[in-house]
Design a protein around this nucleic acid. Sequence first.
DNA 1: ACCTTATTGTACACAGGTGTACATTAATTG
DNA 2: CAATTAATGTACACCTGTGTACAATAAGGT
Lengths: 197, 197
Amino acid sequence: MGRAIKFDRDEAIVWVMNEIWRSGFTALSVKAVSEKLGITRSSFYHAFESREALFLEAMNHYFQISPLLKLSTFAESNSALTLLTQVFKETCKQRTDDGQHRGCLAVNSVSELVGVNDSLSSFMANMVNENINGFEALLTYSIHQGELAKSTDTRHLALALQNTLIGLNTMSKVITNEQELWNAIKVILIALNVYRE
Amino acid sequence: MGRAIKFDRDEAIVWVMNEIWRSGFTALSVKAVSEKLGITRSSFYHAFESREALFLEAMNHYFQISPLLKLSTFAESNSALTLLTQVFKETCKQRTDDGQHRGCLAVNSVSELVGVNDSLSSFMANMVNENINGFEALLTYSIHQGELAKSTDTRHLALALQNTLIGLNTMSKVITNEQELWNAIKVILIALNVYRE
DNA sequence: ACCTTATTGTACACAGGTGTACATTAATTG
DNA sequence: CAATTAATGTACACCTGTGTACAATAAGGT
């Protein structure tokens, strides 16, 4: 063992996540984090390696609290599309419930970092692609369940769903009324034939 | 008259617009702009008032080159929905043609600034709302033209279209193949019954 | 008690950025 | 050619931020 750590690492990650969520990764300085944790920048670099590594930890925590997490449980559901509908509805609720209207940390970060930050760009782009694959897996499962026609183009429908999800998360910064936002999304989900009560 | 200006203001705005487009408003410093223009920061403040005022000028120029500009001409078209389809298709083309995959400056700025920058937040939010109203006006006109049923909920459909547009602009940073992006959007437009060849 | 080890802190040497008060320069107009 | 005027530049007085080399501190195990 060595000297005891002065701060709670988990609490630190949550604080960092919320800071990035509110004002973006670029706006978060090592100086600010260090001061918040009551340590020097030198100690910060020792504990977290770099600002980028810290970002990845914060993003990892975000995945655990994201409304999208539920999507991966489609295999245990008896209606994948009902689950999908619920996740979209829950996302509308959570985004409009947020008094600060910060949208989605992941979508914000895609917008902020892809093509801008060399080391984080591919991570964020990859995240979007994995999400699209997740939608596609759910849709394929839904066909298997008999909810969707076998002729369904799961790839393009998955892309359409990802597009809708990204849209809603950014829209939620402007459209702050839950019903209005959900109605807009509902219109799309119904039209795409993936809406289930 | 007084002393002659050292730089071309129009060229300056275009350069600034592209800088913000590439790496965001926050990343653009008065220092960098001044150096680019070959003047001092002091002269910059004299010429542009503030960084925020400069942003508004750059954004104003962006509106003039945005693929969305065409949308406002729906009254001169014999099919508002064909125009709508073309604008979405053209947006997909322009976004994927951009070798830097910068997406849409306006959508990027909504994501970056709404809820973050006190003086620019409302401007960007207002821009989105005006866009939604623009979509609604086009849809109303389309009903008038007999292309859409009178029972169409233009408000929610307009919100759905805005959602789709914002989605595609962010998606274009990750999905850089024109056909793939356009196919995803096409799926939504067809489903929403607003797609016309 | 002492050694190991993990964490902490100090100090340096920068680079980048802000906004303003005041002075200077150069075109046009009379 | 002088006055006006609108641009320009100089200089100040800051604040924020980066990353690293080196040293000090404190907890646990032997």
